[in-house]
Design a binder for these strands. Structure first.
Lengths: 123, 123
DNA sequence: TTTGTTACTTACTAAAAGGTTGGTACTTGT
DNA sequence: ACAAGTACCAACCTTTTAGTAAGTAACAAA
């Protein structure tokens, strides 16, 4: 059972443990989640960031979803988690190489959004 | 009530009837939907396409979701719909200028996905 | 008159996503 | 003894999203 092709002989794409037939579906899945793009954006602006700080910066996110999304992105190999053996707990998150490779894509997505800036109506 | 800023005096971004404070959220919302990126991708490959043909090309999509997504993208100003007054019905869809402006972004997303191509394990 | 074609619509259901609340662990400072 | 601080977890509930199945309109061809 070849792992570089699907049954039709087409190449496949792997993100973490998941396999896709289509690169767009991979990307789509990777960023699927209400807060993921914002999380990546925040992570892209600094080397590493503590969980509590990230929660403050991603405005409106619940703890549950922040953790859930971070875990998924960890599994996908986009984010890493560093635990400091201290009390109270200290955990830092940062983008992996693969995660950082998404930054230019995110920038384009952001720039596209910027083109929809509201303008003053003519009086 | 100014429509180019939010209450904090920051600029806002408009997609169709919706307003966002953050360009990433706008983009996120615009492409939110299981099939939207694939639909845009298909539309990007040809000038216009009939509904039935689009359904064939976006493999796995149900009629309901295809229609729903197309309608949303129409409201968002990314897609246009052309109805021919014939029987049986003939409807063609195509990207608007704003829709086409997303193509480079989609290309980057696709290229990012391509970097996850599975490779032969070393034997 | 019945059938076929195409682009839908509607109703119903199942599944997934996300929010809220209330925990826990562990150590330090009081 | 206990309160504080931080990063979680688990249970529960609501909302959203998506899938299925059935039906409709309009005309043309058989």
């Amino acid at each position: 059972m070849k792992e570089t092709e699907n049954n039709a002989g087409n190449p496949v794409y792997n993100l973490g443990a998941r396999t896709f037939d289509c690169p767009i579906e991979l990307t789509s899945t990777a960023i699927n989640g209400k807060w993921k793009l914002l999380i990546i954006y925040r992570l892209s602006l600094q080397q590493q960031i503590r969980f509590g700080q990230l929660k403050k910066e991603v405005k409106g996110v619940s703890e549950k979803m922040l953790i859930q999304h971070l875990k998924e992105m960890e599994k996908d190999g986009l984010v890493e988690r560093k635990v400091y053996p201290v009390v109270p707990p200290k955990v830092e998150y940062y983008l992996t190489e693969a995660g950082r490779s998404f930054i230019p894509v995110l920038d384009m997505m952001r720039n596209w959004g910027l083109t929809f800036t509201a303008v003053e109506p003519k009086t």
